[in-house]
Amino acid sequence: MIVAVTAGKGGVGKSTVTFNLAAELDAVAVDADLSMADLPAGRGPDLHDVLAGRAEAVEAVHEGGPVDLLPCGRSLAGARGTDPTALCDALDAVERHYGGVVVDCPAGLRSDAGIPLLSADACVLVTRPTETAISDALRARELARAVETPLVRVVLNRAPEMETASIADALGAPVLRLPESESVARAQRTGQPVATQAPASTAAEQFERLAAAVHSVRS
């Protein structure tokens, strides 16, 4: 199963959700933000190489870390040298080999955000409880509709206790609230999923719920 983690706006926590959801689902996290990659990259081939035909998708997956990861190159020249239409085949190949894929989509509404959504069986929309983030999330929701990818959950990141029914109504999916959390920040600093770093934390429970919701779509 391929799950796309999308957001209209950058900086709302897409990469954090991707990494932790991939850990929960025992899936490969793919950083598909070709121009502004966030997930850590190591040595060896990356998604730029895959989309430029220099490496196979499966051989670019880095195993051995807390989460299997297909990282993305950091250079703009590398991003410019890619064929974005090759992403669908690359994600399919990783899914065939590993079973599960969670894709970190780029922010925005251009085709680079649309193509991973098109490949995905379902998507998760990450946003923040701010006016700009919600209005961008509405546009991202439209993009997901345009490519006919079902939305499983809206993740309202770093949100205080609040009423979320109106957001769920506007975006057309249940909302899962992730509170501002020191355990998420600490896990991120150490490069670990929250479930490993702070298994009893609220954030870890919420990621578990998110994974269960994604699982329910698969079955």
């Binding site: 070709l34 121009s35 703009l76 991003a79 410019r80 890619t82 974005p84 239409t85 780029p106 925005g108 509404l109 251009r110 085709s111 680079d112 955000a113 649309g114 193509i115 098109l118 993009l143 490519v147």
Partner: peptide
Amino acid sequence: LIREFGAGTP
């Protein structure tokens, strides 16, 4: 998608 939404490459 590329035709409709524009290429996302830099």
